[in-house]
Design a protein around this nucleic acid. Structure first.
Length: 483
RNA sequence: GGCCCCAUCGUCUAGCGGUUAGGAUACAUGGUUUUCAUCCAUGCGACCGGAGUUCGAUUCUCCGUGGGGCUACCA
């Protein structure tokens, strides 16, 4: 059992591709088969090596390891179509079809074809290739070839045939061959077209299950006809529902869809992306949503993949990322978050010890949805006294606020051990002494000690800030007096 | 235009002839060491329409409507 993931390096690894890669990966692990990575770079004009690198790195980061691919060749390589072309790999299959009379030379230029298409469009008729080249005599063909006339090779669609696509998700989908036009399998530059290259590659790579996006479903009958013409066994197919943007059209850049690299840079965890994507078009039987990869493989059932398109919902992605951030061990959290702390912030935090810095990150973790959110929440600790004063300047405190702050000041001033427990009892004491509600106590203290109206728990950040800083700030607040 | 696929809360989905149509997210409210957040509880919120099959349709069939995809010398 072999499956494959076959991206084309015409852009960075994007979310839709990852979903396809993931489902292939999960399915392969489920059935104990192999996943093959094949780079489909037959579009010489648009393919770029940098994009291949991006795809490879993205897969690696996501932990979607491929059993065979350009970096880990097996014995069905090469794994780049461009390299396969060099050995006239596809050529021999084209020749086979040519000699069998299942394909033919075609000498029309792209411009001529374009004109035919426009004419068809104007008269409201579905475009079909005219078949002009079919009436060429062997002599005519030979002379054109001898003259070096530019040509393409077209596959001759068998007439009046029902083509059935065996699909593991949708069941059998039947097409009528008469509605298909003879299509080009070899471009005038000698390279194979997509529909032809995939088939030859999947045959020679011994792919047993083709799992890909639904956008390929309509092309499948052409490919099946090719399998048959080449006397090869037709694989099982599975066409995954397409991922949609908010307007329910195919997700694309214009929806603000980002590459994996960008999600990574924004502070999403690889596990989040994997888990979220696994739930787009699939759900485990008991509906649990936070799943490890192992659970994913265990619970996966391709028959449970849904048929309708799924809208990519960033809000839920963020929620899930928060869930994963909270599940990280402290070490993993630190490691994940560190690269996201800005240089500016780093420099302002050097005055703290390593363990204090760790404590800060742990203190703010519940506020994080993206790793990059740390910068905003860590500001409580980086604020200079001047910056603090500026923030405080616009605030006004009431009589009771001042009273609370004074009580806190006195208690902290005389404290010997300013830890979280001390802060806890201090707060309880103040509530008891003043008879004020919790809000009336906590809010002015948070404002006076941090300059922020929100952030980590008082007991978490006050001890890290330290006695000196806290007293300095409280003193300033008190000096403002009540109004 | 032609062909193909699809259709349950705003969104992701469970359901596979009889259910108070379930969960998650989002939103609202309440609770927890206050505010933001976490966590917990509660609430709001859906079967596209019409025929047919059936004792009974969200579920099966057909038609309609809507959405999407494909229809390249792109993949």
């Amino acid at each position: 059992m072999r499956v494959r993931f076959a991206p084309s390096p015409t852009g960075n690894l994007h979310i839709g591709s990852v979903r396809t890669a993931l489902f292939n990966w999960v399915y392969a692990h489920k059935i104990k088969g192999k996943v093959v990575l094949r780079i489909e770079d037959t579009d010489l004009k648009r393919s770029e090596p940098q994009f291949e690198t991006n795809i490879l790195e993205g897969l690696k980061w996501l932990g979607l390891d491929m059993d065979e691919g350009p970096e880990s060749p097996g014995d069905t390589g090469p794994y780049r179509q461009s390299e396969r072309m060099e050995t006239s790999f596809y050529k021999s299959y084209v020749d086979q079809l040519l000699t069998d009379g299942k394909a033919y030379y075609c000498f029309e230029t792209a411009e001529e074809l374009e004109a035919e298409k426009e004419a068809a469009e104007l008269s409201g008729v579905a475009y079909q290739y005219s078949g002009k080249a079919l009436s060429l005599s062997p002599e005519e063909i030979k002379s054109k070839l001898d003259l070096g006339t530019s040509y393409t090779v077209r596959f001759h669609i068998p007439e009046n045939q029902k083509v059935t696509v065996p699909d593991m998700i949708r069941g059998d989908v039947v097409f009528d061959s008469d509605l298909l036009s003879d299509f080009i399998i070899q471009k005038s530059d000698g390279s194979p077209t997509y529909n032809f290259a995939v088939v030859v590659d999947d045959i020679t790579m011994a792919i047993s299950h083709v799992i890909r996006g639904e956008d390929h479903l309509s092309n499948t009958p052409r490919q099946i006809l090719l399998y048959e013409a080449l006397n090869a066994k037709v694989p099982q197919f599975a066409h995954l529902p397409i991922i949609l943007g908010p307007d329910r059209s195919k997700l694309s850049k214009r929806h603000g869809a980002k590459s994996v690299t960008e999600y990574r840079e924004e502070g999403y965890l690889a596990d989040t992306l994997i888990n979220y994507l696994s739930l787009l078009g699939w759900a485990p039987p008991e509906g649990r949503e936070i799943l490890t990869r192992t659970e994913l493989v265990d619970l996966f059932d391709i028959g449970r993949v849904s048929k309708s398109g799924a809208v990519f919902d960033v809000t839920k992605l963020k929620w899930m990322n928060g869930m994963y951030i909270r599940r990280l061990s402290e070490e993993a959290l630190l490691e994940a978050v560190t690269p996201f702390i800005s240089e500016d912030l780093q420099s302002k935090l050097v005055k703290y010890s390593d363990s204090q810095r760790q404590a800060m990150v742990v203190a703010v973790r519940d506020n994080l949805e993206l790793l990059s959110d740390v910068n905003a929440y860590l500001e409580v600790f980086s604020l200079s006294f001047e910056a603090y004063c500026t923030k405080i300047a616009a605030l006004s405190f009431s009589e009771s606020d001042i009273k609370v702050q004074q009580l806190a000041y006195d208690a902290i001033d005389s404290s010997s051990d300013l830890d979280s427990q001390f802060v806890g009892t201090l707060l309880d004491d103040i509530i008891e002494q003043t008879g004020l509600g919790k809000g009336k106590v906590f809010k002015p203290l948070r404002l006076a000690t941090s300059g922020f109206g929100s952030g980590p728990a008082l007991g978490d950040y006050i001890p890290i800030l330290g006695k000196d800083v806290v007293l300095e700030r409280l003193r300033h607040g008190l000096s403002k007096g009540a109004n």
